[in-house]
């Protein structure tokens, strides 16, 4: 749950939006600034905040909030 809140805060900051607008179903291109460049800024910020690293293939494939949450939890060892 902690990861989910932190991720929402990152999303809100990176995409200049309110964190209440982010939910599990939020997908790339649904948020105005979540375009291909936005995706890279997002990945960079998450990597730094959680001290994890996504592979180049993962970055291309993580296109929804839920996918990003699952992958981040997996990498930080918080899978439930």
């Amino acid at each position: 749950m902690d990861t989910e809140i932190k991720l929402k805060e990152i999303f809100a900051e990176i995409f200049n939006t309110n964190k209440d607008k982010i939910n599990l179903k939020t997908k790339q291109n649904e948020l105005k600034e979540w375009d291909s460049l936005g995706q890279l800024r997002l990945m960079m910020a998450i990597e730094e905040k959680f001290d994890i690293s996504f592979s180049i293939e993962e970055i291309a494939g993580l296109t929804s909030f839920e996918m990003i949450l699952n992958k981040t939890e997996q990498k930080t060892g918080k899978t439930h």
Binding site: S36, L37, L40, M44, E47, E48, I56, I59, A60
Partner: peptide, 16 residues
């Protein structure tokens, strides 16, 4: 280099 290959970005997040 990762972001260079993905989007012609040279710097890391901490670099920025």
């Amino acid at each position: 280099n990762k972001y260079w290959y993905l989007g012609r970005i040279k710097f890391s997040n901490s670099g920025f």
